[in-house]
Design a protein around this nucleic acid. Structure first.
Lengths: 112, 112
DNA sequence: TGCTGATACCTCGCAATACGAGGTATATAG
DNA sequence: CTATATACCTCGTATTGCGAGGTATCAGCA
């Protein structure tokens, strides 16, 4: 039955979203597409991941939302707050730590 | 409230455990200590993570367990089965994919 | 006119699972 | 005789990624 579950994605969506928004404000649908792009097609997040995440981050004060109309459709643009920047810095540092730890484990033993 | 939750650890414990056991058989307590070592202190898994994981992997057929007495204490040695090796290969490939995707996202954008 | 597909937003519920806390028991060192 | 290290274990909680499903607008095409 090989249920694989989402592997190695713990915290990754949040990191990616914050990282992209640190560059420039974007709306949800745009994020979904851009995440695929900037990860070289390696990571693809559905809207069921991105939208709830954006709402949570806004509620926690990491993001600020601005509704804007565009061609009759409504877009919700998100941008980083100071708190969001701190959060991003923390996630990046955590990612570096875990990532290097795994890398070390995979490498060090290779010749053991 | 800063609820950080376990960040970037999704699937990592399983990867590390399988990787170490691919080198040589080990018992749980030994794994707990060695994981700290091989990750350069970057990652530290408690027994509450490792033991349930070992049981799950054994039940799914990825690991084989051998009980052995040592100085009056009982040690349970685990080793990889063929299924476990396949599972490890898959996790390593998944890790490479996600890891490189995140890396790309963090880097590519750096220069705008 | 009607159809499709892209755009753009949203929610619900499931299923993993990492983790701390707590529990048992033996050997060793002070 | 006490504390520490060894060595095993389970339970409960909280998080969260994800698919599936839902609404509405707009552009293009037959």
């Amino acid at each position: 039955m090989e249920r694989t579950g989402p592997l190695f994605m713990g915290g990754v969506p949040e990191l990616l979203v914050l990282r992209l928004l640190a560059q420039q404000q974007m709306y949800g649908y745009e994020l979904v597409k851009n995440i695929r792009l900037v990860t070289g097609e390696a990571i693809s997040l559905g809207e069921g991941v991105v939208y709830p995440l954006l709402h949570g981050l806004e509620r926690s004060g990491a993001l600020r939302a601005k509704r804007r109309a565009h061609n009759g459709r409504t877009r919700v643009y998100y941008s980083l707050t100071a708190k969001g920047k701190k959060r991003l810095a923390r996630l990046e540092s955590e990612w570096a730590r875990v990532s290097s730890g795994v890398q070390a484990a995979l490498g060090d033993i290779a010749h053991g």
